[in-house]
Each structure stands twice: as C-alpha cells, then as structure tokens.
Design a protein around this nucleic acid. Structure first.
Lengths: 127, 127
DNA sequence: CCGTATCCTGGGGGATACTG
DNA sequence: CAGTATCCCCCAGGATACGG
C-alpha cells in the first residue's frame, strides 16, 4: 500500500448515500457532465462569444436539439450568458460568464493527468 | 464579454468531432465517470485498502453488480490494484495505485469551484 | 468471503421535421 | 437566424438470484 498523500479535500464518505448529501465535486461534475457541455464551453472560451447556429457549426456533430438543451442548462447554471441583440434580424450572443471562466482553469490538472494516463496506456500497448 | 483568461490548455476544437480525436480531459472524465467510481476511490483513499464486501458496505447504496463492474474497470485502467491474499479463507485487497493517488488532488480545484457554485446557488434561492 | 448471470427500466441523446 | 416538437434507440445502472 502507498503512503497516504494529501488529497486536498475530505474523502470520508457520509453514512448516508453520497447521493443524499450535496457533494461539491459531484455537483461540479454534474454541471459539466454529458456529451457536449465541455466542447461548447471550449468554443466559447476560444471565440469569446458566438451565435446559436455558428456554435452548432463549430461544435462538430451536435444537433440543434442537444445544442438548445445544453445552452439552456448552462445558462440556468450560470456558466454562460445569453444576450439578444437589437436589429431587424434576430441575433443572439452566447458567452462565458465570470463563473464559467473560473471553471476552465480548474480542469487543467485533470487534463494533465489524463494526458499522462494516455501516454502510459499507449506505451503499454506498444510492448 | 469578459477579458480572455489563461485556461491552461488549448480550447480550440478540432475540425473533426471532439469524439474522433483523443482529448486528455474527456479521457480523464470517462475514467472517473459513472455514478460510483469516485465514491469507491474516495473510500480507498480514506481507508488505504479494503476487501470487496467491506467496500460494498461502506459505499452506501451500491449493489454487488455495480461494485464488481466498477472495480474491474478501475483495475483495468490502472487506478486501483487487486491483490489476493494467502490463507484458508479467500481474501482480496483493493487499494489505490500511484496513478490513482495522483488523480485525487487534481480534483481539488474542481471541488472548490463546485463549493462556490453551491453557495452562490443557495444565496440566490434565499432572495 | 468474493463475485457473476439475468432481467428490466429510465432517460440521455440521435434523427428528422417544423416554426417565427 | 434561433430555436422546438416528436419519435426512437441504446445502454448505464437497479433488482434479484445464484455459484465457487
């Protein structure tokens, strides 16, 4: 067995099910869970802001259905903002909120860990 | 729109679907995805090592089915180790691997962000 | 004690079509 | 351009039971 290392938060499970008590980590994972939330956030991070159809074109493979659903949820959760612009043709702008921006860097560690994991996995296959 | 901040990794989407190209972040999220992977990892982090039934007792709500499936996947992914102990009665020890240990602290930032999000949400409901 | 086999259900997500 | 409505399929995960 490994020596115990600092994890940074409590790993003690509650007596009740973890799903009957609000866990911040599970909560965060739920907000960005699903197949398309992260790609949408990435593209907004990359371009600054974006309209509905433009977003649909850039996030390859997503359908209008899922795009609408995800955008609605992300907005309700305060990760993105929706702004209707004035003009004769209808125009809407989606952008990250401050809270949305704050989320992205927190994923960096996980990204690095995943990269390492992929490399180890790849090396094992080469043998 | 917000000023652009450093995210720590590339947010540029590939021309192909994100799901046709191996993204380390998506990969990491897949490894710990599902309902029970994190609770299992937490309990192993908390106790050091654990047998099958003991784990099932502590991770409240999980069934034998899901426990077996998750343990098998986590082992195949190199996050936990499975050791059969010598003796007249069968005994097995599950524990985190070094890679498993390295994962947990990377989730700290996400945990903090989720905590903040819960607090903001709660404050909004009080109004 | 350590699991596996079977059966079943809910909902996430795809395809397609339609509206203002 | 910015979405909604409908239908359908698949599989993660629950319930239950059984075997080494």
């Amino acid at each position: 067995m490994q020596a115990k290392v600092a994890v940074g938060y409590s790993t003690v499970l509650p007596r009740e099910s973890v799903y009957e008590v609000p866990c911040p980590l599970i909560h965060a994972l739920n907000l960005i869970g699903g197949k398309w939330k992260l790609p949408i956030l990435w593209h907004l991070a990359d371009t600054g802001c974006c309209g509905f159809n433009a977003l649909g074109r850039e996030v390859t493979g997503i359908t209008n259905m899922m795009l609408g659903k995800c955008l609605k949820e992300l907005e309700a959760d305060g990760l993105i903002s929706r702004t209707e612009l004035e003009g004769k043709v209808r125009r809407v702008q989606y952008a990250l909120t401050a809270q949305g921006w704050r989320l992205l860097p927190t994923l960096k560690g996980l990204y690095q860990w995943g990269k390492e994991h992929l490399e180890i996995e790849f090396a094992a296959q080469q043998k």
